[in-house]
């Protein structure tokens, strides 16, 4: 809640700054770019945004966080977004193909983990235990769901999930409440959830990786600033923030 309020305050302040800049005769031009980023990047991008503005004081960054596929749809419909950062390539690739975005580059990768309630009541130790427990996965349309599907296929695992949740957050909520025995989410989601869930690691040879990409929206009115932000994601500072949040290098 407080984060939402903080974002609101930032947005209002930013709007006020832009408003006053527009009326004044001040010669320094400040730019505000809007970054549409996957929900899983919420915490780490807030930090990276601060770092970026510190390094580029004339550029203010606003974020809109949503599922990658929703953001892709919004960009196609002409939403005023300058940078698109997606979790997974399936939402990004169609935009690259249709030239709705340019300069796409990967900046991190993420892998999957099994989230279980604290204490692991069902005693899940690995993928092999999943067919016998109440299992939650994301629906296939969102990246975490697509990745879970690839995980099951790669390991020839036949599972019947109890529910196909709309996003990672609703998987974790039900795991935290101990309503389900296990859920498939990203490593970074488990880390961000803190003590409320436990993570059971999936060995690298069984796991699947998801690439995170950022790109400049072709219709952006602030191409240079947008490109600067996309490049900044691969800077040592941003990479350190991403690593701290549990992301791997691309």
């Amino acid at each position: 809640m407080s984060r939402a309020l903080a974002f609101g305050a930032v947005a209002v302040t930013a709007a006020a700054v832009i408003g006053s800049a527009g009326c004044s005769t001040n010669s320094t031009t400040s730019t505000t770019i809007t970054v549409g980023a996957a929900s899983s990047l919420t915490d780490v991008f807030a930090q990276i945004g601060d770092d970026f503005t510190r390094a580029n004081p004339h550029i203010t960054v606003r974020f809109t966080f949503a599922g990658s596929s929703s953001l892709a749809e919004q960009i196609v419909q002409g939403a005023p977004i300058d940078v698109f950062a997606s979790a997974g390539t399936s939402s990004m690739q169609p935009l690259i193909d249709s030239q709705a975005v340019t300069d796409a580059r990967a900046f991190a990768s993420n892998s999957l983990q099994i989230a279980v309630p604290p204490g692991n009541p069902a005693g899940v130790t690995g993928l092999a235990d999943l067919p016998g427990v109440t299992l939650l996965v994301c629906q296939e349309q969102v990246p975490c769901g697509g990745a879970a599907q690839r995980l099951f296929e790669k390991n020839s695992l036949s599972v019947s999930p109890a529910s196909l949740e709309p996003d990672v957050r609703s998987v974790l909520t039900k795991i935290e409440a101990d309503e389900a025995d296990a859920g498939i989410v990203y490593v970074t989601d488990v880390r961000a959830a803190g003590d409320s869930v436990m993570g059971i690691s999936i060995p690298d040879d069984q796991n699947v990786a998801t690439l995170l990409q950022a790109a400049v929206v072709t219709d952006s009115a602030h191409r240079d600033a947008a490109l600067a932000f996309v490049s900044f994601l691969n800077s040592p500072d941003a990479q350190a923030r991403l690593a701290a949040a549990g992301f791997a290098a691309p």
Binding site: L136, A162, S163, T173
Partner: peptide
């Protein structure tokens, strides 16, 4: 519904 019963085609969708 989606919060309490989840989302599974044929069962709760």
């Amino acid at each position: 519904t989606i919060t309490f019963a989840g989302n599974l085609p044929g069962v709760t969708q």
